[in-house]
């Protein structure tokens, strides 16, 4: 049996709020294969961002397990989690989260340097070229448009060829056309690198572009379905070894 890239077992997360515990996620089970692209959908407060955070080891679950390639990550120390993230996880955020005091190229270089990639410079230039910003590498985020910033964020997220890429509302702060362009890019990169993508969105049209849509409501999986038109823009279920 193939080990899923990411497996979530009985994942529960509670947060204190106003003197009592609020259940954000309630015993969720989820299994995501290598190279799969999954959209997590749900209204505000359904727990989708929390689920994303737990998958990346950004937060610790109250109960349950998170396994990356069969290895539990929910009980790793902060240091081990940091090292795990630097090698295996890429992020794309709604508000881009580029380091404002670093140029576009430096933002892309950062994870490569952290992973001690000897060809960091070449790889960064290559990625800048791929996202169509070869001539903007020396610009600071504030000098770039929202779409351009998100393209830099994409390049940064794919830089270390992570096993899994987590995207939180990647088009949430972009206009329709720009958002579409960013999604196309994301699809291209995913195809090239064979990355597993988990994408949180409340936009059903974005979800249509993925292989699979997991609907959350009140901290539980309401529906888990294969997206029919998933391969229209290139998202397709494929198994990539390793």
């Amino acid at each position: 049996m193939t080990i899923p890239r990411l497996e979530i077992r009985r994942l529960t997360h509670r947060l204190p709020s106003g003197g009592r515990l609020l259940t954000i996620l309630d015993a969720i089970d989820l299994s995501i294969g290598a190279g799969e692209s999954v959209a997590i959908l749900g209204p505000s407060g359904s727990g989708k961002s929390t689920l994303l955070a737990l998958m990346a080891g950004l937060d610790r679950p109250t109960e349950g397990e998170v396994l990356l390639d069969g290895e539990p990550i929910h009980n790793l120390s902060e240091d081990r989690l940091a090292i795990l993230r630097r090698r295996n996880v890429g992020f794309v955020f709604q508000n881009f989260q580029l380091l404002t005091n670093q140029t576009a190229r430096e933002n892309i270089l950062l994870p490569l340097e952290l992973a001690s990639d000897e060809a960091a410079g070449t790889r960064a230039d290559e990625l800048l070229d791929q996202v169509g910003l070869a001539d903007r590498g020396h610009h600071y985020p504030v000098q770039l448009s929202g779409g351009e910033q998100q393209r830099v964020a994409l390049a940064r997220a794919f830089a270390t060829r992570p096993r899994i890429l987590l995207a939180d509302e990647p088009t949430g702060n972009l206009d329709g056309a720009t958002g579409e362009r960013v999604l196309e890019l994301l699809a291209d990169l995913q195809r090239q690198e064979g990355t597993t993508v988990v994408l949180v969105t409340h936009d059903a049209s974005v979800a249509e572009l993925t292989d699979r849509a997991v609907h959350l409501r009140d901290g539980r999986v309401e529906r888990d379905e294969v997206v029919a038109g998933g391969d229209r823009v290139g998202y397709q279920r494929q198994v990539v070894a390793g």
């Binding site: 950004l58 940091a82 993230r85 630097r86 090698r87 005091n101």
Partner: peptide, 16 residues
């Protein structure tokens, strides 16, 4: 704070 959070996401260890 935001930068620090991003750095941690990208794999910076707390002591780094």
């Amino acid at each position: 704070m935001d930068s620090i959070a991003v750095l941690k996401c990208l794999g910076y260890r707390p002591r780094e």
